[in-house]
Design a protein around this nucleic acid. Sequence first.
DNA 1: TACAGTCATGTCAGCAAGTGACATCAGCAC
DNA 2: GTGCTGATGTCACTTGCTGACATGACTGTA
Lengths: 185, 185
Amino acid sequence: MGRWEPDAVGRLRAAAVDLYVEKGFDQATVTDIAERAGVTPRTFFRYFADKREVLFSGSVDLQKAVVTALEEAPETATPYEAVWAALEAASTMIGQNHDWSRMRNEIIMANAELQERELIKLAALAAAMAEGLRVRGVKEPDASLTAEVGIAVFRVAFGRWVAGPANRKLTRTMRQCFDRARALI
Amino acid sequence: MGRWEPDAVGRLRAAAVDLYVEKGFDQATVTDIAERAGVTPRTFFRYFADKREVLFSGSVDLQKAVVTALEEAPETATPYEAVWAALEAASTMIGQNHDWSRMRNEIIMANAELQERELIKLAALAAAMAEGLRVRGVKEPDASLTAEVGIAVFRVAFGRWVAGPANRKLTRTMRQCFDRARALI
DNA sequence: TACAGTCATGTCAGCAAGTGACATCAGCAC
DNA sequence: GTGCTGATGTCACTTGCTGACATGACTGTA
């Protein structure tokens, strides 16, 4: 046993999410969160760059999965097909937990600052995908265009999935949007 | 003559942009800006919701132009073609002033918070475009997909144009990316 | 001419986010 | 036991942003 209760990060994360749901993101102060986690506000900012970041710790793994999928996609795949591999990998990760996704999404949609953070994470994902495509030999502007379109598809598909019934598969919705985009463009 | 110098908003905007360039967005405090504009910090927040918003006052007009273009696009146009009309209108507005766009873009790219704001404005633009398409009778998810892809094209094209030489036409770059997306997807 | 109302701005007090510098002290290595 | 390390606490501070109220030039009207 350490000097303090272990897993301060875990307690902070849990406390934050609880409070964001209970009182709303704006009303939940860092002091509240820290207090509930049995810790000082200063400690909160040691683990999370800011109040929003609590909800985005998963984005690192997501980005890794996406990049890996791009690397492992068959050499013969077109850029858009390679992007599909990335979207599929992302869907598999996120699609596991419809409940969590829905709750998290509700918190985010209720607050503009959180939407901003969500968007910049997706922009970073797009940038990573574009880089992954460039590694595959795709030139600009093709790499960026394909990656950005991929993220566009992701956004729409995720939005539909998260608003729909829990038993629907994200991968399925993603594929439908992916194909539909192809038909529309 | 009023009790104070006229056009406080204009002075605030100018002072803010100047200082963002001179010292960087983070280092420029609202107190600085207000002081240079000969006004109280409180007044700054009467005109701008926050420190970032100064750089985004044009987005209202942009959105109007886009929506109008969608309304006026020929009935026979496919969704993607209607989106082109919107992108063209946006390009015509923004493409006028390469210097201003480049400076503004440099300020924004140097700061994550500003990029977040830029992204949410673009997301709002996408939402407005999707709504415009729905008005045209396009169903979901087609409306959202087409609109989001349109914004993806816009992002890439704008990025290329703003980084390129001043005499290049935004509309041209936009069209190239628009067509290239069609080829890639 | 006086009077009332309005509008842009000032004044002031205050909260919450976020940061830097330094203190503390359990546990571990040696 | 000595000394180091790492996680947390403590404190003081800056900055963004807000609410409530004050001020006084301008405008319209009787």
